[in-house]
Design a protein around this nucleic acid. Structure first.
Length: 511
RNA sequence: GGAGCGUUCGUCUAACGGUUAGGACGCCAGGUUUUCAUCCUGGUAAUACGGGUUCGAUUCCCGUACGCUCUACCA
């Protein structure tokens, strides 16, 4: 590679960023960083009718959350700005004019209504060589007539004039040689009536001006690639064209087809990276972040959707991904998204992440549940105790709320059937034991000691530990779950332990 | 309809002509956990179909089927 690698992610700001979009960002980022190149964010906001306020900010926020920060962007600036296409409007016109001068493009005066009528009249209508002469444009019309129309500011677009009987091809990095017959390609609009470029013109002009070396985009763009290749040929030369890589799609889990926002709603899992609230409808679509995914896990699972390094390794840090990434190991076929596996990735990352780093991420969920955390160190300790049973961040609340407040519901139904006087007496004496410890000034006792003392008492009462452990757990936790009983006692300390036993004893005798 | 792209366990994928077609998720069974989860062990399950090429095809070629994407003055 003779020039520095420069890649770009070019979304249009119309809503939340879905899995496929973020994965495109990720592959861009990994490729750029692997080659010590630059990653650019360019906002493609040429369609003013689809502009959604807040969407651009959302994209920036999402990239920041994922840790995929662009080197150049509307926010960060850079030497090739502006990075919003709406602010580059003037640049595109000159290239469209050049194309007209060279005879590679023409003016078209057909109204949308004209075209609709044509589409109805002719099956499989395409604005192309086959029908050009039947329409109102600077090829079919006389020069004088065109001059008048232009002089009168008649609304018009500029279309590419696709040549006849040529083969246009590109060497896609992922798919290899792909070729098209120009007779099958239609004369796409390059410059709209409002003076804004369409994607087709803008992507070519901006990729050139921004010195993009590798252009990644979703597979859905492949059918329009010949238009882009032609534009490169006419405007800047094929030798300057970036290498294309059309990425496979991310598919819905059931059936076939591209994963959509609706699939997530239907099947109950997020599709967007972060919560997205549509300002028009004021409805919020849930995101992976808010569902409780770690960004590292999210990035990891996305990377594995369509790429692998050829080994059995599945858990990767971003650094490892950068080091190992290569386009020749990206798949051609689409990948169905599996939410179960996504959760597994997150569980792995929760186990892998230090308790101290988890604490601030988990804390908001406790606040939401109105559970106060007085001691940050205590939270860190509890996280260590329960992290391996949590797949998603919010589960920390359900798995550990009893460490912070006494359980509100107690599953006495699981104790009652086998409850008897002997057990009652046992727990009464256990309380006495703990109270006596407290009177010596002890707040808590190590779990190992607690266990020994507990078993001594069990033996004294001629009972079996097995039949006492479950009741004890339920008294403390409220249900049949959670870490080791004595670790819980150690954590919540003697005073709370005693209170909880006594409360439950009352509950059991009142029934 | 047309064009382009794709196709290995249910899912994500490995095997770049020679393997009992491997791993992971899920699921099932057993063990550990005197609970649940974790963890460990084992099991389940795939080369879309038909022709070639070859001593030998998951792998290369052709065809068929199926699927997907595009077919807007949207990206």
């Amino acid at each position: 590679m003779d020039s520095k690698v420069r890649v770009r992610f070019a979304p249009s700001p119309t809503g939340g960023l879905h899995l496929g979009g973020v994965r495109t960002v990720l592959f861009n980022y990994l490729f750029a960083k692997h080659h010590k190149g630059e990653f650019i964010l360019r906002i493609e906001d040429t369609d003013q009718t689809r502009f959604v306020p807040g969407a651009e900010q959302y994209i920036q926020d999402t990239l920041a959350w994922c840790g995929l920060t662009p080197d150049e962007s509307p926010l960060h600036g850079g030497p090739y700005g502006p990075y919003r296409q709406s602010e580059r409007k003037a640049m595109y016109k000159q290239y469209a004019d050049t194309l007209i001068e060279k005879g590679y493009a023409y003016y078209a005066f057909d109204t949308p209504e004209d075209l609709d009528a044509k589409r109805k009249e002719i099956p499989n209508f395409q604005y192309s060589r086959a029908h050009r002469m039947e329409l109102k444009n600077s090829i079919s019309l006389g020069a004088d007539e065109v001059a008048v129309l232009l002089k009168n500011n008649t609304p018009h677009v500029i279309r590419i004039k696709v040549p006849e009987n040529e083969e246009v091809s590109l060497d896609d990095v992922i798919r290899g040689h792909v070729s098209f017959d120009t007779n099958m390609v239609d004369d796409k609009v390059l410059l709209k009536a409002d003076g804004m470029p369409t994607y087709h013109l803008a992507v070519v002009v901006d990729d050139y001006l921004m010195k993009i070396t590798h252009a990644f985009r979703g597979e859905e763009w492949l059918p329009s690639a010949p238009v882009h290749v032609l534009l490169w040929k006419y405007l800047f030369g094929l030798d300057k064209m970036p290498k294309w890589a059309h990425l496979p799609l991310i598919l819905k889990p059931d059936g076939n087809g591209k994963l959509s926002k609706r699939d997530g709603e239907r099947l109950g899992f997020p599709v967007f990276a972060m919560d997205w609230t549509d300002p028009n409808t004021n409805t919020t679509t849930i995101g992976f972040k808010e569902r409780g995914f770690l960004p590292a896990a999210f990035v990891n699972l996305l990377a594995m959707l369509g790429w692998n390094d050829g080994t059995d390794k599945e858990i990767y840090t971003i650094e490892e991904l950068i080091a190992g990434f290569s386009l020749d190991r990206v798949h051609k076929g689409g990948a169905k998204f599996d939410y179960e596996k996504a959760k597994w990735f997150n569980a792995e990352w929760i186990k892998k992440t230090e308790n101290e780093k988890l604490a601030p991420l988990v804390r908001p969920y406790f606040e939401e549940a109105k559970i106060e955390i007085h001691n940050p160190n205590y939270l860190v300790k509890i996280i260590g105790l329960v992290k391996e049973r949590c797949h998603l961040l919010p589960e920390f609340v359900a798995q550990s709320s009893f460490f912070f407040t006494a359980p509100t519901t107690i599953d006495t139904a699981s104790i009652a059937p086998k409850w008897d006087e002997k057990k009652y007496l046992f727990f009464e004496e256990l309380v006495k034991l703990y109270v006596s410890k407290m009177e010596t000034g002890l707040l808590t006792i190590p779990a190992s000691t607690l266990e020994i003392e507990f078993k001594e008492l069990v033996a004294k009462h001629e009972l079996k530990a097995g039949e006492l452990m479950l009741p004890f757990r339920i008294m403390l936790v409220g249900g049949k779950f959670g870490p080791g009983v004595f670790e819980i006692v150690e954590a919540i300390e003697l005073k709370d332990t005693v209170t909880r036993i006594e409360k439950c004893l009352q509950l059991l005798s009142s029934n």
